[in-house]
Design a binder for these strands. Structure first.
Lengths: 129, 129
DNA sequence: CTCAAAATAATAATGATTACTATTATTAGT
DNA sequence: ACTAATAATAGTAATCATTATTATTTTGAG
């Protein structure tokens, strides 16, 4: 894997913007620094960085994938009102692995949990109606 | 909501084929009985039936949604080798809800867990190499 | 410096799903 | 049963996120 300015800058963008950006958001942020960068490059590098263990790719059911620079075991909650993504510290892997093994002889390699609901801020806002 | 032959038959197809079919699989199965049915009708009715609580829609990260007629709380494991979907009896909701509430004041409405790994059958097959 | 390998920008293609539209089926009220 | 309002349909086009293609440019080892 060769060094490229683009990849380094993309990693920096994800690390500095802890907003769980989508590929498209990263693309928008990147164009401020490198106006000629292409969307394909952003996608390719986000995937490469994720494979390489530098960032995490968060698959979002019925939505764009998101990218996260926090690498500790945690899952994600998405507010269905404002769309913001929150981290929730939990390790489902250690929860699921023994269950899957015991009940189905299933050798778990990864799992993905997405939680939907209303965040505190939006719940507060809704009170005023 | 009016009665339609198509919707009734689609529900029957999902209920009888406990293979967690995708919309496209349902479409293929349906065309054997109703050759002129359209893919749009299949999608619309699967979504209607899911909203109505007759079936469950299982969002699959980076893949087609799947539909399930088993309505008890359970999650899904997908074999990355053969693609088969397995049910795993667990109620993450009751697991996640208190945690999300306590840590973030987040009001959870739903959550979706997908587990990836190798199923027993495929693991057995791989041994022979 | 040179040159092969890798990465890029730009664009086209893909796959899943939804939207649109003219036509047909269903059903409530006569 | 008849009819009008309305919901559902088939067929098609459009959308969205993502990946593939390709000709050109960058990178880094020798």
């Amino acid at each position: 894997m060769k060094y490229s300015k683009q990849r380094a800058e993309i990693l920096k963008t994800v690390t500095e913007n802890r907003i769980h950006p989508t590929a498209d958001t990263v693309y928008t942020l990147m164009r401020e620094k490198m106006p000629d960068i292409s969307l394909g490059t952003v996608y390719r590098n986000l995937n490469l960085l994720a494979e390489n263990g530098d960032i995490r790719k968060i698959p979002v059911p019925n939505g764009s994938d998101r990218f996260d620079s926090r690498m500790n075991p945690h899952e994600h909650m998405i507010c269905t009102e404002c769309g913001e993504v929150f981290d929730i510290d939990m390790d489902i892997m250690s929860n699921v692995k023994p269950l899957a093994d015991r009940e189905h002889n299933f050798d778990v390699s990864s799992c993905s949990l997405t939680v939907y609901g209303i965040c505190a801020k939006c719940a507060e806002k809704n009170k005023n109606y």
